[in-house]
Amino acid sequence: MATRDELLACLAQFRDRCNADAQLRPMLADWERTILIRASDLPAEHLLIVRGGQVYLEPAAADGADLTVIAESGLLADLFAGRITPTEPYLNGSLRVLGTEEDIMRLDFISLMIWGE
């Protein structure tokens, strides 16, 4: 389990890695999405907003998200810090992503682009 602050720090790290990656920017240019990150074991929700090739981290708002990512806080922290990849947790159900398959693929892709070998 991660604390709320630890999770927030991992999300900020993810945002910063995305925004520092010059190759990733044009790959996100056509993709504007609001991604709700929900920890299942903490009262913690955050928004990652992808707009204009940049990623923003904001407190969760009431408005609907395009994608919702749900997992235990420890898993979310590990994922967004790049300590594990999302594929296996997604396939074994410990990570749930609610959205279209295209958006799920794109999120997986972003994570691999910034954390892949």
Partner: peptide
């Protein structure tokens, strides 16, 4: 993957493949 990014040449393709394919 629906990403409007053209991969130009084999070097870039190989680099991308190393990052993406083991998981994809």
């Amino acid at each position: 993957a629906g990403i409007p990014y053209p991969i130009r040449g084999l070097e870039e393709l190989t680099r991308m493949a190393k990052k993406l394919l083991p998981e994809m």
